[in-house]
Write a protein that binds this DNA or RNA. Structure first.
Length: 1128
RNA sequence: GCGCGCGUAGCUCAGUUGGUUAGAGCGCCACCCUGAUAAGGUGGAGGUCCCAAGUUCGAAUCUUGGCGCGCGCACCA
């Protein structure tokens, strides 16, 4: 028997009890066991970092990541869900630094790398409990116990294998480049990391005069005007660049003969005048080529003494000044600035290319060398005394002031632009800086990556060629190394004699080396502190101590390079590293590669989506493993916004904590909001209001139907277990074995309709979910629940309340039994259809309807059943269409009443229906449902209208879709002709011949066939009528005295029912009634219908007198005063 | 600057290969129902489908150009 169901569900409490059932029953494990050996559905978990608190965005990803594995499992596939944690990198180090109150690398070194690493490892698990709680609370089924962890030795060694493989293929190289440098953190960052840190800031923008030199090396009155937004790079100036084919002019303040002269690109001359609010005379013209080769005085003498510029021999013979010369460069534009670019090769990538090009012009070893007065920590060295020891950006103001004092500052303003800051320490601006760094040659694989990408199924589709494709197009080599501490160490050892290198793929490979030493450093640490994790063996500083004999030189040693790697490489390696492959887990890796499905938010395009694709493409190519890999389908989620539509931010407090939502509305409410509220790739506004409002339309409605069923099934003793010995999986076929089961074909129409809707919905949902369209599937499901609640249950109430036992035997009420079976099957099916979406409430329903009813012989959990595919033989499309027509007619009837202010309580004599498209079968069918329509509309008589022309006019419209292609330009004429034509005559002609000819204005004629037109029916004025595209419904608005009397009586019943409710009576409580009214009409009506009144209100008696001790209410019914006394 | 996405009712959003009267939910107003009931239903008001030009017999839908918002990219010296 079913358990009683409370009418007011407490979803959060319910969910906690369901979670306990899953936990205690090991249901997740059983759901896997059930599919062992089946086709695999491969899912990869993109590892979150557990050292930050989970937020609403994670709830969305976890909901989507849960939905599809649950669904595919119910569809019969085997889907392992291995959790993972991202544990390395700057986020962790920065967090630890904050805790220790330190910031710079020097401070970390002072604190000690060893204890620092220990702190990092502990910090990784800081919010583990919150993550685990969230995961269980939102119903995300994933195996946390087998989670991969990027700092684990097994994982690190997999990454080592990948790096060694790339190194051996020459794809991992060390290069001297200008990199984006986090000075405070002392490391370079990858383009992905840099991209995350751009922010709009106002920087100083200065126009600086570079005086041209005369033959003696003395400054002249004429200066180049260069523009920069980084004054701190001026002390390291080496060149000035112009565009060769650009026109330049020399400006002098108008009318001042001895004023300074400025060289500037002609198109920008006017702009400079405006900025300076001065008028200039143009005193000279020249092309860029004329300037090339001229020497100038740099703004600072950091690297150059005053006087004649130093010269050096050229490769081609002769000699030339080494630096502080004008050079030609293509990157010079007139978009902004002056057309003359200050070149500081140390601090800009293009600047650096100028230096390389210049070096090539000079005899080997004589060209310009890179000058740089900035230390790696971002402070000026002693070479630039003015700023020595201070952070460069802080010196901008002093440098500008100094230039101004020396008369070299032409103009100064604020320049607003985007500038990168460190993504984990957002107060630290990045600078471009020359640095030796390790790179992966990803740019060499651009075409392969694009080919791989082309095969991936991206949702939404535009990601493929849009954002992600573009990112691949502009691919640059992956700046892999980090001069940091907590990360996967770069497994490259260098010969301290020859500088030759080799990469090692595993710890075992190190141990196998001759003369290996330094292993003991970790062993000693472990002996001193046995709690030390063995995983740290492969981390700094222990791994740095490990050295071995060089194979390249006698008596030389191999020592590891100091760098660790970008943590994005770790997560990108997870497809194989999660198993420790190739050192372990060969079978697992082969079975679980590539993934069928992954999903993360859009910010992962440059993150995890890219790192996975790049690593996989480089390592596995396309021969052994055809594209796409390592993932086939990827749902890219939109960004989550706060209540105000702005980015979620802790400080702005514009979002509720997930825990708060769970406690108030429950996880299912949140899941349904995410899944059914909008397509997943739109940015979702996470508002409490929206979540709250999503509850009644689906969850509560479903619950109400379920509760309705349980209440009456208990009252009637409908017990499926007593009628069905072996429940099987409670499919339609299983239920059909029940005693007293009526085959669907023999059931009443409403039942056939309901099951038709159920099975059609199932089929549609499967089709949509197979396309990863959960939003569409959810909408379909919502429509179904609405149909059950607002039509099946509504129209079946009488059946459930009818007399007699729900029994197929003699004396039983078979129709009632059918109603129960229909609703039972419907609810069981909906529970399964909705299970991947709202796993808790569906489980609660299943636990009662299946488990409580059948005990151990039924599937233990809804998640251990098969997903309903829909039985096409039970779908009757015609019935569905016609039922929609009845609902339409009922709805129109109510609209017609409303238009005449005739409330439904007032009975009317007749309703007449005119179908837009005359169909004898539909009319017959409607006529057969006269009772239903009369009941819904409270009318006495239903009729298909015999004289439609009284109520309606018809017009004939062209079917544009059919006639458009055929008539083309003549279409408007045809439309006019049809509008003017006599509709009745035209229709008659079409009915008789199947075609008709209409004249076109301006000559000609068109032949119209029956199928080419649409007939529209419009209600005439003056009738209580309402129309839809399918029908016109007219209600008779005339009232007879008897109808009025009945209406009054129903008003009285309504009033009494309201009083019962006010008195908080149970629906079985009996009452006695007393009426007092001076209206003979009302009294007469009541007397005539007294039996009806007492029956409806469960009254044992009714008198026309005051009832002592009764609750009384006086009211006025359409001008008839009445006092009602109710006594319990 | 370049690229991607989005602009539809007061709010949040649907809108299928271009087609006749552009929809839903919430909110609002009115009404109804009441043996699921601190629920439920019906109806109504509310729209220059961001703007403009073009293609077409016909554009919310396709093209181009603007405007606005969000995001991304980075040789902005």
């Amino acid at each position: 028997m079913f358990e009683p169901v409370r009418g007011k569900p407490d979803f959060p409490a319910l969910e906690r009890s369901i979670a306990a059932i899953w936990r205690d029953g090991g249901i997740y494990r059983k759901s896997l066991e059930r599919r062992r050996g089946a086709k695999r559905f491969v899912f990869y978990e993109g590892p979150p970092t557990a050292n930050g608190m989970p937020h609403p965005g994670h709830c969305l990803t976890r909901t989507i990541k849960d939905l599809y594995p649950r669904y595919r499992t119910m569809r019969g596939e085997y889907c392992e869900r291995k959790a993972g944690w991202d544990t390395h990198g700057l986020p962790v180090e920065v967090e630890v630094c904050k805790e220790l109150g330190i910031h710079s690398k020097a401070e970390i070194e002072a604190y000690g790398v060893e204890p620092f690493i220990h702190k990092c490892q502990e910090s990784v698990w800081r919010y583990m409990r919150e993550w685990e709680t969230l995961t269980e609370r939102i119903g995300f089924w994933i195996d946390l116990s087998q989670a991969y962890v990027t700092y684990h030795r097994r994982f690190v060694e997999s990454v080592w294998w990948a790096l060694a493989t790339l190194f051996d293929q020459g794809l991992l190289y060390q290069g001297h480049k200008i990199v984006w440098w986090w000075a405070q953190g002392g490391t370079a960052l990858s383009s992905g990391e840099v991209g995350q840190g751009y922010r709009e800031v106002a920087d100083p923008s200065v126009y600086v005069a570079f005086p041209l030199l005369d033959d003696e090396g003395q400054p002249t009155r004429r200066s180049l005007v260069a523009w920069t937004t980084t004054p701190w790079t001026l002390p390291s100036n080496q060149f000035a660049a112009v565009k060769a084919d650009l026109a330049y002019v020399v400006l002098r303040e108008a009318g001042v003969a001895d004023a300074p002269e400025y060289v500037i690109a002609e198109p920008l001359a006017a702009t400079l005048g405006e900025k300076l609010k001065m008028s200039f005379d143009i005193v000279d013209h020249m092309p860029g080529t004329a300037l090339v080769g001229r020497s100038y005085a740099p703004p600072f003498d950091t690297f150059r003494a005053a006087g004649r510029p130093p010269v050096a021999p050229l490769a081609a013979g002769g000699e030339a000044p080494v630096a502080w010369r004008v050079v030609a460069a293509d990157f010079v534009t007139t978009d902004s600035g002056t057309g003359i670019v200050h070149v500081a090769p140390a601090f800009g990538e293009v600047d650096y290319t100028v230096l390389i090009a210049e070096q090539a012009r000079f005899a080997a070893g004589h060209g310009p060398t890179l000058v740089n007065c900035v230390a790696p920590d971002g402070t000026f060295t002693d070479a630039f005394g003015m700023g020595s020891g201070r952070f460069v950006k802080e010196c901008d103001r002093d440098i500008t002031r100094d230039i101004k004092a020396r008369g070299l500052l032409v103009h100064q303003e604020q320049y607003v632009h985007d500038y990168p800051f460190c993504w984990r320490a957002d107060a630290d601006p990045l600078i471009q800086y020359p640095r030796q760094s390790w790179f992966i040659r990803t740019s060499q694989f651009r075409e392969q990556m694009l080919a791989n990408n082309a095969r991936i199924d991206w949702l939404p589709e535009h990601i493929k060629d849009g954002r992600f494709g573009n990112f691949l197009e502009t691919n640059v080599d992956w700046a892999l190394s980090r001069e940091r501490y907590w990360g996967t160490p770069l497994p490259i050892w260098v010969c301290d004699e020859t500088g030759k290198m080799e990469a090692l793929p595993s710890y075992a490979a190190i141990l196998a080396k001759p003369g290996v030493a330094g292993i003991d450093v970790f062993e000693r640490a472990k002996a001193a502190d046995p709690s030390l994790s063995d995983d740290l063996r492969v981390h700094k500083p222990y791994i740095d101590a490990v050295t071995y004999d060089s194979p390249f030189a006698k008596n030389a040693r191999m020592r590891r390079v100091p760098e660790v790697i970008d943590c994005w490489f770790d997560s990108g390696a997870m497809p194989f590293a999660q198993w420790g492959w190739p050192h372990a887990g060969d079978a697992e890796f082969k079975a679980q590669f590539p993934a069928d499905f992954i999903s993360e938010a859009i910010d992962q395009t440059r993150g995890w989506f890219y790192s996975q694709l790049a690593i996989s493409t480089l390592l596995f190519g396309c021969e052994a493993t055809p594209y796409p890999h390592p993932f086939k389908t990827c749902i890219v989620l939109g960004h989550m916004l706060g209540e105000d539509g702005q980015k979620m931010s802790k400080s702005r407090r514009n979002y509720r904590e997930p825990a708060e939502i769970f406690d108030k509305y429950g996880a299912d409410a949140l899941r349904w909001f995410f899944l059914a509220g909008q397509p997943p790739w739109t940015s979702i506004r996470y508002s409490e209001r929206a979540i709250r409002e999503s509850v009644p339309e689906f969850l509560l409605r479903l619950w109400n139907v379920y509760s309705f069923f349980a209440i009456y099934a208990r009252i009637d003793g409908f017990d499926p277990a007593s009628l069905l010995a072996t429940p099987g999986s409670l499919d339609h076929a299983d239920l059909a074995c029940a005693k007293g089961w009526t085959p669907v074909a023999d059931r009443g129409e409403l039942d056939r309709w309901m099951l038709s809707e159920v099975h059609a919905t199932a089929a549609e949902m499967v089709e949509r979910l197979d396309r990863y369209d959960h939003f569409g599937a959810a909408q379909r499901l919502s429509t179904l629940v609405d149909a059950v609640s607002n039509w099946f249950v509504r129209r079946s109430r009488d059946r459930f309340w009818a007399a007699g036992r729900a029994d197929a035997g003699p004396g039983g009420n078979r129709d009632k039994l059918d109603a129960y079976w229909t609703l039972y099957e419907t609810l069981l099916t909906i529970a399964r259809l909705a299970a991947p979406f709202v796993p808790f409430v569906t489980e609660a329903i299943w636990q009662n309807l299946a488990v409580a009813a059948f005990g151990a012989s039924a599937p233990e959990s809804v998640h251990l059943t098969d997903y309903p595919l829909g039985d096409a033989t039970l779908v009757d499309a015609d019935l569905v269409r016609r039922m929609a027509l009845v609902r339409d007619v009922a709805s129109l009837g109510r609209a017609a009443r409303a238009a005449e202010k005739l409330k439904v309580r007032q009975p009317l004599s007749k309703v007449e229906v005119i179908l837009a498209a005359a169909s004898p079968t539909d009319e017959a069918w409607l006529a057969a449902h006269a009772d239903l329509v009369c009941d819904e509309l409270n009318v006495k008589q239903f009729e298909i209208c015999r004289e439609p022309d009284r109520y309606i006019t018809r017009s004939v419209l062209p079917d544009l879709k059919k006639l458009g292609p055929r008539l083309g330009k003549d279409l408007p004429k045809a439309r006019d002709a049809l509008a003017k034509a006599d509709a009745a005559a035209l229709l008659a002609a079409l009915a008789a011949d199947g075609r008709a000819t209409i004249p076109l204005t301006g000559g000609g004629a068109a032949v119209i066939e029956k199928e080419d037109v649409i007939v529209r029916t419009t209600a005439r004025e003056g009738w209580a009528a309402a129309e839809s595209p399918h029908a016109v419904v007219v209600v008779a608005s005339q009232l007879t005295p008897e109808l009025v009397a009945e209406g009054l009586v129903r008003e009285v019943v309504h009033a009494i029912q309201s009083q019962r409710k006010t008195l908080d009576l149970d629906f079985t409580d009996r009452i006695t009634l007393g009426f007092e009214t001076p209206s003979a009409e009302l009294r007469g009506a009541l007397e005539r219908h007294l039996a009806y009144v007492t029956g409806e209100t469960l009254a044992e008696s009714a008198v026309f007198a005051e009832l002592p001790g009764a609750t009384s209410e006086s009211l006025d019914l359409d001008g008839h005063p009445l006092t009602i006394h109710v006594k319990t």
